[in-house]
Design a protein around this nucleic acid. Structure first.
Lengths: 343, 343
DNA sequence: GCCAAAATTCAAAGCGCTTTGAGTTTGCTA
DNA sequence: TAGCAAACTCAAAGCGCTTTGAATTTTGGC
């Protein structure tokens, strides 16, 4: 049914070499010949056999993902959304995935095995931790990779795509301060992940620049779930002097926080202000909250798609993308923020 | 660095044929020879080149997934969790994924393209709709597949893995009736998906068997998100004669429903009872709710893993699994259910 | 018109594995 | 001890593509 190169070449009265070159964009092919080849491809529906291509080129045509199965991370909404972006772009280039679920303490070995197996020609790392040893390991592996996020405490001398977490939370905090808030809380992600570290840093910087004291009791680290968000907010509200504003590291966390706020009989944007980081999860839109959420926004799906693009271009040696990208976030003001209540 | 078959055979003083057979478990190899081969593999760390294997066997070694990007389904927590199970099992057999994000109206074409490409040797279908045309298409495709779920309104003459949705919601409803509830509501998933249809059917059957009237105003179809769950519950509570019990098609929906219930000042398990279907999402455990949830339980991850097992065994023609499986769910009673309030 | 250089095209050699069909041993039976 | 099946092992032919190195055809300058 499906034609192969040989048959196609025969039909055209050409050699396999020429047809192959015509298809792969090599310059030494007559323009007219190339046209003939292309239209024959269209007629026959010829699709090169990927396995043969892989064997011949030595390229695996796939990207290795290590899917973390640590508690609270696995099957994370955020991971799913990111994956959608990655998939969208990869499928366009006929790339596969090798998804390796792996426990955190086994990840290094998993990466090594993946790289050595020859089954993937690029790796992808996410959920970076402070001083993450996995990055040094990736660098030693002689296989392209892109890190989603960045380590802290070590030079950023590797390919990454990160958002400006420090800047995002700096901006958000500054806005709250401008609105008159003095006691600002943070419900952050897990404390060992670098995005959490940077968000905290951004918040502290804004506080310090405005001569405000940083209060440790106003920071909680939490899994990125509704449940933990709720719990954290509740603890804040039970404190002697509760915060008048709160930053949430995810709209999922905000979901729980908002619940706790309502439960306490407080009015969002009046009694208490809230800013969440919005990964643009289609199932959880900040504008659909009962009180629409002010957010710092950056699309996770877009990040996934971009990383796929960069990885594939590296593998195929086409195009030329920057090795390091830091995306700015947008601060979008909605109804959940307002002036600090007069106490 | 990496040895290949040829080198391995040379080292052992054997032919490639024999080594290959020893590795692939063919019977015509001397037991002692096989042991020598296996220990040599261990020493050298030999790993067969998958591309070559694929080319030689004609098997692609990968499973095609069509990741729905319909609103409210894409990057669904439930999909992520399922994927984790699928990945866990596949990685064990060195299988890849081809993840095709695809809009619903393009899914048929996507499947066809995938099957024809030769890049996958099995397909997987989920989010089955009533009278789903995609199933007939899969059957015509001469490539193994497993459906997660079942169609309604057509014979189930294809491989599937489904849970007994009808039974689950029948049991749950019956329990509520036994507790004295007469007005029972349902916050279901999207109305066009077959699991929703069956859950409704289970509920209706239990009502009818107990001589209770089914009330259309007590059923809502909703995306499987917190937000929609909340909205649906709110509408129920605003009705003239609100329900005393409610069934939720997912713990994610329950999250929102519980919020609405608390907001209305009602006490779970006393003023109103709630039973949710629990897919065993690690990020959302029914026992961690402020009032632990009574649930019908069936692990999505286990389903993913099982489907991978079946698909791979079909491809490799090893083992022998049933073509059709219907998993019963467990009804686990916790604090969110109680006797109907005396009105 | 002739010839070197440029433009095309080609035959054939892999890539690393599986599998066919045939050869070589070995173990028994008669 | 011959003879034959059973048990092993092997050489070689693909799988369908890319790529090298060489062959052929065109082109353009003189």
């Amino acid at each position: 049914m499906n034609v192969n190169l040989k048959q196609l070449a025969e039909m055209l009265g050409l050699s396999q070499t020429t047809v192959s070159r015509a298809l792969n964009g090599y310059p030494e092919v007559n323009a007219e010949t190339r046209q003939r080849v292309l239209s024959a491809v269209r007629e026959t529906g010829y699709r090169p056999n990927r396995a043969a291509q892989r064997l011949a080129t030595g390229r695996a045509g796939s990207i290795g993902l290590v899917m973390p199965i640590a508690q609270g991370i696995d099957s994370d909404v955020h991971f799913g959304e990111f994956l959608a972006g990655l998939g969208e772009e990869s499928v366009r280039h006929d790339f596969h995935f090798v998804i390796n679920p792996s426990a955190p303490d086994d990840e290094e070995a998993t990466f090594k095995r993946l790289a050595a197996s020859g089954n993937v020609d690029a790796l992808f790392l996410a959920y970076v931790r402070a001083n993450d040893p996995r990055i040094a390991m990736l660098k030693s592996l002689s296989i392209p990779f892109v890190v989603h996020g960045r380590a802290v405490g070590q030079p950023a001398d590797y390919p990454f795509l990160d958002i400006d977490n420090t800047g995002a939370f700096y901006d958000a905090t500054r806005l709250l301060i401008q609105l008159g808030h003095r006691r600002i809380a943070l419900i952050n992600g897990p404390g060992n992940l670098t995005f959490s570290i940077r968000r905290l840093k951004g918040m502290r910087r804004a506080l310090e620049e405005n001569g405000l004291q940083f209060d440790e009791r106003l920071v909680q680290n939490s899994l990125m779930t509704d449940e933990y968000g709720h719990r954290a907010m509740q603890q804040f509200l039970e404190q002697g002097e509760p915060p008048t504003a709160v930053l949430c590291s995810s709209t999922v966390i905000a979901l729980g926080a908002v619940r706790a706020i309502h439960r306490a009989g407080l009015q969002m944007g009046e009694d208490i202000s809230l800013i969440a980081h919005d990964d643009v999860l289609p199932m959880l839109k900040p504008e659909n909250f009962s009180v629409p959420l002010t957010t710092t926004r950056s699309s996770l799906r877009a990040a996934g798609s971009r990383i796929a693009t960069r990885l594939i271009s590296r593998i195929l040696k086409t195009g030329d993308y920057p090795e390091q990208e830091l995306w700015r976030t947008e601060l979008i003001v909605r109804a959940s923020t307002g002036p600090a209540p007069k106490s």
